[in-house]
Amino acid sequence: MIAQIYFSVFATLALACALYLLVARHPLYGALSLIGTMLSLAGIYSLLSAPFLGVVQVLTYAGAIMMLVVFVIMVLNSSHDHVVPRFDSRGFILLLVPAVLSACLLYVLHTTHPLVDAGAIQGSAEAVSIQLFNTSQQGSGAWILFEFIGLLLLAAMVSAVVLAKKHLDKKDCV
């Protein structure tokens, strides 16, 4: 019962913050409301018996990614941000796309009846890492993906540094 109450509070917060992102005037306010969405989603993950993913969500999404976004918004704080109209004038026709998409999704979801399986495992850090680093033949093979994710993150870091650095003159380089 108390889980139900927490769930409705988190779900309302997530949807309200997401709707505020749609209409926010300054990108900084939008980023702060997106952080609110991510924190309430972390709470929902914990309620859905995935506490490890909730912690990862807070650390990586609300912590690292949104910190980077807020940092770049503050660095590039252009003075004519408020003069630019918020919405694309022709973009309102494009709103049909998510409207039709949500109608289709809700119709499909309405016809299915997913039920909670009592045998679902509580996703603690131990259970997740046992499944993730299972290198035996019977395992899911997710550890290979884990290695490739490390490579991907390294490539992303190097490309971000190369893209965003200022092009210095050769004589300025020491």
Binding site: L22, F92, L95, V97, P98
Partner: peptide, 13 residues
């Protein structure tokens, strides 16, 4: 949430 995200990406300038 997915549809709101798509709407934000399409409509905002």
């Amino acid at each position: 949430l997915f549809c709101i995200g798509v709407a934000v990406a399409l409509v905002r300038r």
